[in-house]
Design a protein around this nucleic acid. Structure first.
Lengths: 219, 219, 219, 219
DNA sequence: AATGAATGAGGCTTCATTCAT
DNA sequence: AATGAATGAAGCCTCATTCAT
């Protein structure tokens, strides 16, 4: 698993940060992510991380003052990535293009993209999910990311389609919730609740989009 | 908070169990539920539980052989309650009555009932959610409860309405997922993600039902 | 095992003591002897004793103020019994009779009698042996018993036979040591070191007496 | 006492083992041996060992995973040493030489050597003796050592002298038992039962050898 | 930068003993 | 006499963190 993760890419706070990770540091992070996501932060000992990383116990504390700092060095950058302004960054220009006059295309892209992202970064996200419950800082940071980078462009689009009469006249917040809830619900079911079930990912995604579309679409 | 919880009622496995909790035991359970849900199982020390419960630390271990047994004595009964077969038990006779020929009534009752349940038992459920990630036994028990008590009657109803042409022709599993995902999504948003936001519960529930209805309804 | 032990008989300090043991007390003693001898005094918990005795934890402390008092109530009477003045009490009159002019008869009786005693009371003796190492009171009491009741009559007999030229002219203490050491060595080998070996008890006892006889006998 | 013990020498399993003991580890072992032998394994707390060793309690567990492992690291090597094949190693060549045609020389060396050994390692041996009663592994290991390294060469010599008509025609096992029992009996009396008595070690050893000789010697 | 021995606070658990019933 | 819930001190052990090398 660890070789699939491109830590260099994922763990940098912003894209400008030049993050130099020594090999040992990379090993430590890989090990920490693995074990944190298997057993939880509190049930993981630094000595176990050191062992799995193949470094001495003290080495961890050379790079991270405390165990908590190690956790945050994993989770914090991920928060930014999770809330990665899908719309804003990648689609903002295309979305109002003639090709996107039907928003199911937008939705489809969104779903596929997020699904791949979650699949690739599941251990990170498990840790984040668990620890956000006990570290309000994390929760706040994510919410702030959301309201700054996701919500505005999401809202803009919803209102756009509402004006065009394509989306039902719910409050924008509700629409966003319906959409996200359905997508996240599918992903969670797929990857956490029933990871061993046989799934036709494509079909299931299509059905989910269908469901959302009918649910919010102005008939 | 603790006085709202009726432990006697909640913590008994089946309704026939005569569960005698001594006062001290009740105090211990209340304290444990509070702190587990605040900080998580692993971050909670038995000495802290004892202190908050106002008992000696040894007293905990008179009633629960290990800390884990204490956790399970809290979570296990809740699993049964969570999967409480709303349909089967309460509505099975009414649901096919003429009054329920429109299934939004069914849905409405389901949502209201589950919402109240979660609201009342939030600390329990937080603990359950967190710990299921690290105790496969718990996850398995919940899944088994679900497939035995929830899924069958849910499926029956969905198929009933599909035959009548009222529900779109998705796989039953997908329909169930859409419905549950939307309900759970609303509840989670309301109680965990934005507990401090101003919500019009009634209106939000109605909208959520609307969304589900349009989403799965055969137009 | 417990039914073979006649606690009433064994556990009374002196023969005049009228020792009334309630049924519960007897159960407690039986259980304590069993477990002490299996696991040692320190590794035995009072709750385990209570459980095996079928009484409540508190009941033990109704009869014995402390766990140590329970131990001593088992070991102390046994000390008297162990040092039971074999010679003095039973044989003093016979030993100088014409039948005993050869002291091997004396020895033979001594060995048989002590062997049976040890065999019957092995658990007691194991406890005594173990705990004497850590409770000087016990060791002192045994030594005092020995020098008061065993040593004098033993000495008398040894000197008697030395005067008659039948026992070699070693210091009496040495003769006693040779004799006891050989007997105890045989018993310990038989019952503790090789309890599962096939032994011809009779033959082995005879050989041991032979060995002692040749060893101390004035040829 | 502790400075008399050469732990490095004693605690190594075989002479090839390069046993590196850090100073702290040595302190821990010295303290453990002292207190174990004074109060017994179960009555000794790790915190007391730490205190007497002048280290933190945690340090003990850096070197020995459990308290039991600490015990075994003390007792196990001693088992080998106890069964040290005196005959085989040191005398095997000389014993059949003309000088040894009288086996009392052999016996004398054996007794002296073992006596010195016990005297020097008394704390170790006390611990071993006590704990063998509750740890069958230890007992089995000692018995195995005995039957592999002591018994064969002992037997060989006994049979040699029996063939020469110098040792009485008892079963070899009995002869060995008589000899060992008498030696051990003397040592135990001297060092454990009457450590404060005035003894003429030389004379007592000579007398014991005498006793054994007469006891087993074919007159 | 890296190591790993050492620390000591704190965790879970056991246990002898007490006491109200 | 008997019970057994309750106690709290103490036991073994783990762990994040420090520091000399």
């Amino acid at each position: 698993m660890s070789d699939e993760l491109n830590l260099q890419e994922i763990l940098q706070e912003t894209e400008n940060d030049t993050l130099k990770l020594t090999p040992k540091q990379t090993k430590i992070l890989e090990a920490a992510i693995e074990i944190f996501s298997e057993k939880g932060y509190n049930a993981t000992s630094t000595s176990e991380i050191a062992k799995r990383a193949g470094v001495a116990e003290g080495t961890i504390f050379r790079h991270y003052k405390t165990k908590k700092e190690l956790l945050f060095s994993i989770v914090t950058p991920m928060i930014t990535k999770v809330a990665l302004p899908v719309f804003a960054n990648k689609f903002v220009k295309e979305v109002f293009s003639p090709d996107y006059d039907r928003y199911d295309q937008l939705l489809r892209t969104l779903v596929y993209e997020r699904y791949q992202f979650v699949k690739k970064n599941l251990p990170f996200l498990k840790i984040m999910l668990q620890e956000m419950a006990f570290h309000p800082e994390l929760k706040e940071k994510l919410q702030q990311q959301f309201s700054q980078h996701v919500y505005p462009s999401f809202k803009e689009k919803v209102e756009h389609y509402q004006k065009e009469g394509q989306i039902r006249d719910y409050p924008v917040e509700s629409v966003i919730r319906f959409v996200m809830t359905s997508i996240i619900g599918m992903i969670v079911t797929r990857l956490l609740i029933l990871p061993d079930a046989e799934w036709d990912d494509e079909a299931e995604i299509e059905r989910t989009i269908d469901f959302i579309m009918y649910g919010i679409h102005q008939s």
